[in-house]
């Protein structure tokens, strides 16, 4: 039962990804990214990680995409670049395929034992996050703070520096 679902979601994910890297229009790319990221949330649901699916949609789809679109709008230049690809894009295809080959080979070499996925449930995640992973949790929040301050400083207008 989960197989056809998996296939559909997988196609959506990969399709969105391909859209991001192939389209010439930046806004289209952002929308493709949104599609891909929401599909990834679907994958999380397939492995019964509901909380993470929720977080994924909230953060990525809610915040990051918005920020990206803001940035796109703010950095529009007068003339659209005719070509949105690099001179080295053929080589990039080869590199991408090579890396995929390596990774797939390493995943399929030694197959893990067959098992059924299980979801942890919110309670378990919360408990783990605030006991065993409490310190990294605090550090990550510090990281967010630093990123916030840094972003303000870097992107601030010339007169806003003080």
């Amino acid at each position: 039962m989960s197989e056809p679902l998996f296939v559909i979601v997988a196609i959506l994910t990969l399709g969105g990804g391909l859209g991001v890297v192939a389209t010439r229009n930046v806004v289209h790319a952002a929308l493709f990214l949104l599609l891909s990221l929401v599909s990834v949330a679907g994958i999380y649901l397939l492995v019964f990680a509901e909380f993470l699916a929720l977080v994924q949609v909230l953060i990525y789809g809610g915040a990051i995409i918005i920020v990206l679109i803001f940035a796109i709008m703010l950095t529009r230049s007068q003339e659209y670049p005719r070509i949105s690809d690099n001179p080295q894009w053929p080589l990039a295809i080869v590199a991408g395929l090579a890396v995929f080959g390596v990774l797939a080979a390493s995943f399929l070499w030694n197959l893990p034992p067959a098992s059924e996925p299980e979801g942890p449930g919110l309670a378990k995640i919360g408990e783990s996050l605030f006991t065993k992973w409490a310190v990294p949790f605090e550090v990550v929040s510090l990281v967010l703070l630093v990123a916030l301050v840094g972003a303000i400083i870097i992107a601030g207008r010339a007169g806003d520096r003080e």
Binding site: Q88, L91, A92, A95, G96, A98, V99, V102
Partner: peptide, 9 residues
């Protein structure tokens, strides 16, 4: 970045 990818492979 290409160098890194090639190197990793």
């Amino acid at each position: 970045a290409m160098g890194m990818a090639v190197g990793a492979v």
